[in-house]
């Protein structure tokens, strides 16, 4: 057990498992968010359901916090070690297989972390733009008006731009991360590796389009 948090492979396995769970979360989160396309009723009812889960939602939140913390801690630690192992660079270096996404994992990761804090402060804890907070606004059925909160939030080009930039970071992170986690967990072979690489890339693009469709629809006035 100790080796899991100390060994080079052990720590990568922790990163892969935590990454996988976060990946699962952002798929579920997207599916939940798309209820916005069914109008105020859809997403407000969905938000109400989540709130009514009570302790369950808090258990989820604690699990996610532990996952993110482990992932960030080892991500930073591993990257620092990797940089120390490669002092000085070549006068000329050609990259044959690695990608922009694979070489910028720490930067896309840190951007995601930064955005995550901003995102929670804005839509979960309502510290940023409290004027649009759903805590004060209720729909006709007396539910928190998450719909109006999102629509008002994303009608700001700035809020939407920051969100889209963060989704680019997520997409790049996953473009490398998905296939990487299969390799780290040993869940591939010679013939499935290229297929998993492609599927990972496509999944990252689909998630990106799904998430970006929300501010895009609001900015375009389709959802209002």
């Amino acid at each position: 057990m100790l080796l899991l948090f100390k060994n080079t492979v052990g720590r990568k396995i922790v990163m892969a498992v935590t990454g996988l769970l976060m990946f699962g979360f952002i798929i579920g989160h997207l599916l939940g968010n798309t209820t916005i396309f069914t109008g105020p009723d859809g997403i407000n009812a969905y938000a109400e359901k989540l709130r009514n889960l009570g302790p369950l939602i808090w258990i989820m939140r604690v699990i996610m916090l532990v996952m993110v913390s482990l992932h960030v801690f080892f991500g930073v630690q591993i990257t620092l070690e990797d940089n120390a192992a490669k002092p000085g660079s070549y006068a000329m270096k050609r990259n044959l297989r690695s990608t922009f996404a694979s070489r910028s994992m720490i930067w896309t990761g840190l951007l995601i972390a930064g955005y995550l804090i901003y995102h929670l402060l804005q839509f979960t804890f309502h510290v940023i733009n409290p004027e649009i907070s759903s805590m004060k606004n209720f729909d006709s059925l007396g539910r928190h008006d998450v719909f109006s909160m999102l629509v008002h939030g994303f009608q700001s080009v700035l809020v939407s731009s920051v969100y889209i930039a963060a989704m680019i970071a997520v997409a790049l992170h996953l473009a490398h991360g998905i296939q990487s986690l299969f390799q780290t967990l040993g869940l591939n072979n010679d013939s499935s590796l290229p297929a998993i690489e492609k599927a990972g890339l496509i999944t990252a693009v689909i998630l990106f389009l799904g998430y970006v469709s929300i501010p895009a629809a609001i900015l375009a006035g389709i959802v209002k």
Partner: peptide, 13 residues
């Protein structure tokens, strides 16, 4: 790791 090599990030270079 003791020899000062880095970790594997699956770059496949």
């Amino acid at each position: 790791m003791k020899e000062g090599f880095g970790n594997c990030s699956n770059h496949y270079e």
